[in-house]
Write a protein that binds this DNA or RNA. Structure first.
Lengths: 136, 136
DNA sequence: GGTTATTAGTTATCATGATAACTATAGAGG
DNA sequence: CCTCTATAGTTATCATGATAACTAATAACC
Protein backbone atom coordinates (compact mmCIF):
# COMPACT_ATOMS: atom_id res chain seq x y z
CA UNK A 1 0.00 0.00 0.00
CA UNK A 2 2.40 2.57 1.26
CA UNK A 3 5.64 0.76 0.77
CA UNK A 4 6.96 2.34 -2.37
CA UNK A 5 7.48 5.85 -1.23
CA UNK A 6 9.17 4.81 1.96
CA UNK A 7 11.51 2.15 0.64
CA UNK A 8 12.70 4.34 -2.16
CA UNK A 9 13.00 7.28 0.25
CA UNK A 10 15.03 5.32 2.74
CA UNK A 11 16.98 3.38 0.10
CA UNK A 12 17.15 0.23 2.21
CA UNK A 13 16.49 -3.14 0.59
CA UNK A 14 14.39 -3.53 -2.50
CA UNK A 15 10.72 -2.81 -2.83
CA UNK A 16 9.70 -6.22 -4.15
CA UNK A 17 11.29 -8.11 -1.30
CA UNK A 18 9.65 -5.91 1.30
CA UNK A 19 6.30 -6.19 -0.48
CA UNK A 20 6.64 -9.96 -0.57
CA UNK A 21 7.41 -10.07 3.16
CA UNK A 22 4.44 -7.88 4.04
CA UNK A 23 2.12 -9.93 1.90
CA UNK A 24 3.42 -13.11 3.50
CA UNK A 25 2.71 -11.73 6.96
CA UNK A 26 -0.78 -10.69 5.89
CA UNK A 27 -1.50 -14.12 4.42
CA UNK A 28 -0.19 -15.88 7.48
CA UNK A 29 -2.29 -13.79 9.80
CA UNK A 30 -5.42 -14.47 7.75
CA UNK A 31 -4.79 -18.18 7.94
CA UNK A 32 -4.10 -17.93 11.67
CA UNK A 33 -7.47 -16.31 12.13
CA UNK A 34 -9.23 -19.02 10.19
CA UNK A 35 -7.53 -21.63 12.31
CA UNK A 36 -8.27 -19.78 15.54
CA UNK A 37 -11.92 -19.61 14.56
CA UNK A 38 -11.93 -23.28 13.72
CA UNK A 39 -10.30 -24.26 17.00
CA UNK A 40 -12.47 -22.06 19.12
CA UNK A 41 -15.56 -23.61 17.54
CA UNK A 42 -14.32 -26.80 19.23
CA UNK A 43 -13.44 -25.03 22.49
CA UNK A 44 -9.76 -25.31 21.70
CA UNK A 45 -6.92 -22.98 20.73
CA UNK A 46 -3.90 -23.40 18.50
CA UNK A 47 -1.69 -24.02 21.51
CA UNK A 48 -4.05 -26.58 23.03
CA UNK A 49 -4.12 -28.37 19.71
CA UNK A 50 -0.33 -28.35 19.43
CA UNK A 51 0.00 -29.75 22.95
CA UNK A 52 -2.34 -32.62 22.13
CA UNK A 53 -0.45 -33.24 18.88
CA UNK A 54 3.04 -33.40 20.36
CA UNK A 55 1.96 -35.86 23.02
CA UNK A 56 0.12 -37.97 20.51
CA UNK A 57 2.96 -37.88 18.01
CA UNK A 58 5.66 -38.81 20.51
CA UNK A 59 7.28 -42.09 19.48
CA UNK A 60 7.84 -44.76 22.18
CA UNK A 61 6.00 -42.85 24.91
CA UNK A 62 2.41 -41.96 25.56
CA UNK A 63 3.14 -39.13 27.95
CA UNK A 64 5.42 -36.12 28.21
CA UNK A 65 6.59 -33.83 30.96
CA UNK A 66 5.67 -30.19 30.76
CA UNK A 67 9.34 -29.39 30.20
CA UNK A 68 9.49 -31.82 27.28
CA UNK A 69 6.48 -30.19 25.71
CA UNK A 70 8.24 -26.91 26.26
CA UNK A 71 11.24 -28.12 24.29
CA UNK A 72 9.02 -29.13 21.39
CA UNK A 73 6.75 -26.09 21.26
CA UNK A 74 7.88 -22.52 21.08
CA UNK A 75 5.99 -21.16 24.06
CA UNK A 76 6.90 -19.83 27.49
CA UNK A 77 6.69 -21.99 30.60
CA UNK A 78 3.92 -20.00 32.30
CA UNK A 79 1.71 -20.02 29.23
CA UNK A 80 2.25 -23.74 28.80
CA UNK A 81 1.42 -24.29 32.44
CA UNK A 82 -1.77 -22.30 32.24
CA UNK A 83 -2.86 -24.08 29.08
CA UNK A 84 -2.03 -27.55 30.37
CA UNK A 85 -4.03 -26.76 33.50
CA UNK A 86 -6.98 -25.87 31.34
CA UNK A 87 -6.65 -29.09 29.31
CA UNK A 88 -6.54 -31.11 32.52
CA UNK A 89 -9.63 -29.36 33.77
CA UNK A 90 -11.50 -30.02 30.55
CA UNK A 91 -10.53 -33.68 30.70
CA UNK A 92 -8.45 -33.93 27.54
CA UNK A 93 -5.24 -34.63 29.45
CA UNK A 94 -4.40 -36.56 32.61
CA UNK A 95 -1.53 -35.94 34.96
CA UNK A 96 0.45 -38.65 36.76
CA UNK A 97 3.42 -38.25 39.07
CA UNK A 98 6.76 -38.88 37.47
CA UNK A 99 8.37 -41.85 39.26
CA UNK A 100 11.88 -40.63 38.43
CA UNK A 101 11.54 -37.01 39.51
CA UNK A 102 9.23 -35.85 42.22
CA UNK A 103 9.16 -32.33 40.81
CA UNK A 104 7.71 -33.47 37.53
CA UNK A 105 4.46 -34.90 36.20
CA UNK A 106 3.74 -36.93 33.13
CA UNK A 107 0.98 -35.62 30.89
CA UNK A 108 -0.98 -38.05 28.73
CA UNK A 109 -4.01 -37.87 26.46
CA UNK A 110 -7.28 -39.18 27.84
CA UNK A 111 -9.58 -41.17 25.58
CA UNK A 112 -11.55 -37.98 25.28
CA UNK A 113 -8.37 -36.19 24.20
CA UNK A 114 -7.64 -38.77 21.55
CA UNK A 115 -11.21 -38.57 20.29
CA UNK A 116 -11.00 -34.79 20.15
CA UNK A 117 -7.78 -34.91 18.18
CA UNK A 118 -9.19 -37.40 15.69
CA UNK A 119 -12.32 -35.30 15.33
CA UNK A 120 -10.45 -32.07 14.75
CA UNK A 121 -7.66 -33.05 12.41
CA UNK A 122 -9.59 -33.40 9.15
CA UNK A 123 -11.08 -29.92 9.51
CA UNK A 124 -7.68 -28.51 10.41
CA UNK A 125 -6.08 -29.74 7.22
CA UNK A 126 -9.15 -28.90 5.21
CA UNK A 127 -9.01 -25.32 6.51
CA UNK A 128 -5.36 -25.00 5.50
CA UNK A 129 -5.81 -26.63 2.10
CA UNK A 130 -8.88 -24.58 1.36
CA UNK A 131 -7.10 -21.35 2.24
CA UNK A 132 -4.06 -22.18 0.14
CA UNK A 133 -6.27 -23.02 -2.83
CA UNK A 134 -7.89 -19.59 -2.66
CA UNK A 135 -4.63 -17.66 -2.59
CA UNK A 136 -3.70 -15.76 -5.75
CA UNK B 1 7.50 -32.40 11.52
CA UNK B 2 4.39 -34.39 12.13
CA UNK B 3 2.36 -33.52 9.10
CA UNK B 4 2.88 -36.55 6.96
CA UNK B 5 1.24 -39.19 9.06
CA UNK B 6 -1.79 -37.07 9.71
CA UNK B 7 -2.48 -35.71 6.25
CA UNK B 8 -2.14 -39.11 4.68
CA UNK B 9 -4.25 -40.60 7.48
CA UNK B 10 -6.99 -38.08 7.07
CA UNK B 11 -6.73 -37.91 3.29
CA UNK B 12 -7.57 -34.21 3.17
CA UNK B 13 -5.60 -31.91 0.91
CA UNK B 14 -2.05 -32.67 -0.16
CA UNK B 15 0.96 -32.85 2.06
CA UNK B 16 3.09 -30.33 0.20
CA UNK B 17 0.48 -27.61 0.34
CA UNK B 18 -0.06 -28.08 4.05
CA UNK B 19 3.69 -28.14 4.66
CA UNK B 20 4.05 -24.94 2.66
CA UNK B 21 1.32 -23.26 4.68
CA UNK B 22 2.84 -24.28 8.00
CA UNK B 23 6.27 -23.11 6.97
CA UNK B 24 4.80 -19.81 5.82
CA UNK B 25 3.18 -19.30 9.20
CA UNK B 26 6.41 -20.14 10.97
CA UNK B 27 8.38 -17.71 8.82
CA UNK B 28 5.85 -14.96 9.32
CA UNK B 29 5.87 -15.39 13.06
CA UNK B 30 9.67 -15.25 13.15
CA UNK B 31 9.65 -12.01 11.21
CA UNK B 32 6.90 -10.63 13.45
CA UNK B 33 9.10 -11.30 16.43
CA UNK B 34 12.04 -9.54 14.90
CA UNK B 35 9.86 -6.55 14.14
CA UNK B 36 8.31 -6.57 17.62
CA UNK B 37 11.77 -6.58 19.14
CA UNK B 38 12.85 -3.74 16.87
CA UNK B 39 9.80 -1.65 17.70
CA UNK B 40 9.97 -2.26 21.39
CA UNK B 41 13.59 -1.12 21.39
CA UNK B 42 12.13 2.24 20.34
CA UNK B 43 9.26 2.06 22.86
CA UNK B 44 6.81 1.32 20.07
CA UNK B 45 4.73 -1.61 18.87
CA UNK B 46 3.68 -2.74 15.42
CA UNK B 47 0.26 -1.19 15.89
CA UNK B 48 1.66 2.14 17.09
CA UNK B 49 3.93 2.19 14.08
CA UNK B 50 1.04 1.43 11.72
CA UNK B 51 -1.02 4.21 13.24
CA UNK B 52 1.77 6.72 12.71
CA UNK B 53 2.23 5.47 9.15
CA UNK B 54 -1.39 5.71 8.05
CA UNK B 55 -1.68 9.25 9.34
CA UNK B 56 1.58 10.26 7.73
CA UNK B 57 0.73 8.59 4.43
CA UNK B 58 -2.72 10.10 4.11
CA UNK B 59 -2.90 12.24 0.99
CA UNK B 60 -4.48 15.71 1.25
CA UNK B 61 -4.92 15.58 5.04
CA UNK B 62 -2.56 15.70 7.96
CA UNK B 63 -4.97 14.20 10.44
CA UNK B 64 -7.42 11.32 10.69
CA UNK B 65 -10.30 10.37 12.91
CA UNK B 66 -10.03 7.26 14.96
CA UNK B 67 -12.76 5.71 12.86
CA UNK B 68 -10.81 6.46 9.70
CA UNK B 69 -7.74 4.80 11.12
CA UNK B 70 -9.98 1.89 11.98
CA UNK B 71 -11.04 1.56 8.37
CA UNK B 72 -7.43 1.49 7.23
CA UNK B 73 -6.01 -0.85 9.87
CA UNK B 74 -7.36 -4.24 10.74
CA UNK B 75 -7.79 -3.75 14.47
CA UNK B 76 -10.72 -3.50 16.86
CA UNK B 77 -12.04 -0.16 18.09
CA UNK B 78 -11.12 -0.66 21.75
CA UNK B 79 -7.56 -1.68 20.95
CA UNK B 80 -7.16 1.27 18.63
CA UNK B 81 -8.55 3.57 21.30
CA UNK B 82 -6.17 2.24 23.93
CA UNK B 83 -3.18 2.55 21.62
CA UNK B 84 -4.05 6.03 20.41
CA UNK B 85 -4.41 7.10 24.04
CA UNK B 86 -0.93 5.82 24.70
CA UNK B 87 0.49 7.64 21.66
CA UNK B 88 -1.16 10.86 22.84
CA UNK B 89 0.32 10.39 26.27
CA UNK B 90 3.79 9.80 24.87
CA UNK B 91 3.51 12.92 22.70
CA UNK B 92 3.72 11.34 19.25
CA UNK B 93 0.15 12.32 18.38
CA UNK B 94 -2.06 15.30 19.14
CA UNK B 95 -5.81 15.38 19.33
CA UNK B 96 -8.02 18.24 18.16
CA UNK B 97 -11.79 18.47 18.15
CA UNK B 98 -13.43 17.76 14.84
CA UNK B 99 -15.30 20.90 13.77
CA UNK B 100 -17.81 18.87 11.73
CA UNK B 101 -18.73 16.24 14.29
CA UNK B 102 -18.65 16.87 17.99
CA UNK B 103 -18.35 13.14 18.72
CA UNK B 104 -15.09 12.89 16.84
CA UNK B 105 -11.50 14.06 17.16
CA UNK B 106 -8.81 14.54 14.59
CA UNK B 107 -5.50 12.83 15.29
CA UNK B 108 -2.30 14.26 13.86
CA UNK B 109 1.42 13.57 14.16
CA UNK B 110 3.42 15.87 16.37
CA UNK B 111 6.88 16.93 15.28
CA UNK B 112 8.15 14.33 17.67
CA UNK B 113 5.94 11.76 15.93
CA UNK B 114 7.31 12.69 12.53
CA UNK B 115 10.85 12.50 13.84
CA UNK B 116 10.19 9.10 15.37
CA UNK B 117 8.77 7.78 12.12
CA UNK B 118 11.72 9.03 10.12
CA UNK B 119 14.11 7.54 12.64
CA UNK B 120 12.44 4.15 12.66
CA UNK B 121 11.70 3.48 9.01
CA UNK B 122 15.19 2.59 7.78
CA UNK B 123 15.62 -0.04 10.48
CA UNK B 124 12.16 -1.39 9.77
CA UNK B 125 12.90 -2.06 6.14
CA UNK B 126 16.39 -3.23 6.95
CA UNK B 127 14.96 -5.78 9.37
CA UNK B 128 12.58 -7.09 6.74
CA UNK B 129 15.16 -7.16 3.95
CA UNK B 130 17.70 -8.84 6.18
CA UNK B 131 15.26 -11.51 7.23
CA UNK B 132 14.18 -12.24 3.68
CA UNK B 133 17.78 -12.52 2.58
CA UNK B 134 18.45 -15.18 5.20
CA UNK B 135 15.49 -17.34 4.26
CA UNK B 136 16.27 -20.63 2.50
C1' DG C 1 -39.83 18.18 14.13
C1' DG C 2 -39.92 13.93 16.71
C1' DT C 3 -38.81 9.11 16.63
C1' DT C 4 -35.52 5.68 15.05
C1' DA C 5 -31.30 3.98 13.36
C1' DT C 6 -26.33 4.68 12.74
C1' DT C 7 -21.95 6.12 13.95
C1' DA C 8 -17.87 7.77 17.11
C1' DG C 9 -15.88 6.80 20.84
C1' DT C 10 -15.48 4.58 25.44
C1' DT C 11 -15.61 1.07 29.19
C1' DA C 12 -15.51 -3.49 31.14
C1' DT C 13 -14.10 -8.03 30.68
C1' DC C 14 -11.72 -11.84 28.71
C1' DA C 15 -8.03 -14.58 25.93
C1' DT C 16 -3.51 -15.55 25.05
C1' DG C 17 1.19 -14.24 24.63
C1' DA C 18 5.57 -12.65 27.51
C1' DT C 19 9.18 -11.88 31.62
C1' DA C 20 10.70 -11.90 36.33
C1' DA C 21 10.91 -13.93 40.42
C1' DC C 22 9.69 -17.66 43.41
C1' DT C 23 9.70 -22.89 45.63
C1' DA C 24 11.15 -27.39 45.69
C1' DT C 25 13.83 -31.04 44.06
C1' DA C 26 17.89 -33.10 41.62
C1' DG C 27 22.50 -33.40 40.53
C1' DA C 28 27.68 -32.12 40.80
C1' DG C 29 31.97 -31.15 43.10
C1' DG C 30 34.65 -30.87 47.03
C1' DC D 1 27.57 -35.41 53.37
C1' DC D 2 27.18 -30.59 52.30
C1' DT D 3 27.13 -26.85 49.59
C1' DC D 4 26.08 -24.80 45.07
C1' DT D 5 24.01 -24.90 40.75
C1' DA D 6 20.59 -26.28 37.54
C1' DT D 7 15.96 -27.81 36.48
C1' DA D 8 10.57 -28.46 37.01
C1' DG D 9 6.97 -26.16 37.91
C1' DT D 10 4.37 -22.16 39.73
C1' DT D 11 2.88 -17.35 40.71
C1' DA D 12 2.43 -12.48 39.86
C1' DT D 13 2.30 -8.98 36.64
C1' DC D 14 2.18 -6.93 32.19
C1' DA D 15 1.26 -6.39 26.90
C1' DT D 16 -1.68 -6.67 23.24
C1' DG D 17 -5.39 -8.74 20.84
C1' DA D 18 -10.79 -9.52 20.94
C1' DT D 19 -16.20 -8.91 21.98
C1' DA D 20 -20.15 -7.01 24.24
C1' DA D 21 -22.38 -3.38 25.95
C1' DC D 22 -22.57 1.42 26.87
C1' DT D 23 -23.06 7.03 25.92
C1' DA D 24 -23.53 10.80 23.05
C1' DA D 25 -24.22 12.80 18.74
C1' DT D 26 -25.53 12.60 13.91
C1' DA D 27 -28.49 11.23 10.04
C1' DA D 28 -32.80 9.41 8.06
C1' DC D 29 -37.64 9.05 7.79
C1' DC D 30 -42.04 9.74 8.11
Amino acid sequence: MMIDGYVSQTGVGDVDTVARALSMMREASQLERLLDAYFSSHNLSQLKFHILIVIDREPDKDSLRQSEINQRLDVSKPVLHRTVTSLLKSGLLVCRDDPEDSRAHRLALTDEGKTMLAAILPGYFKTISGFMREQP
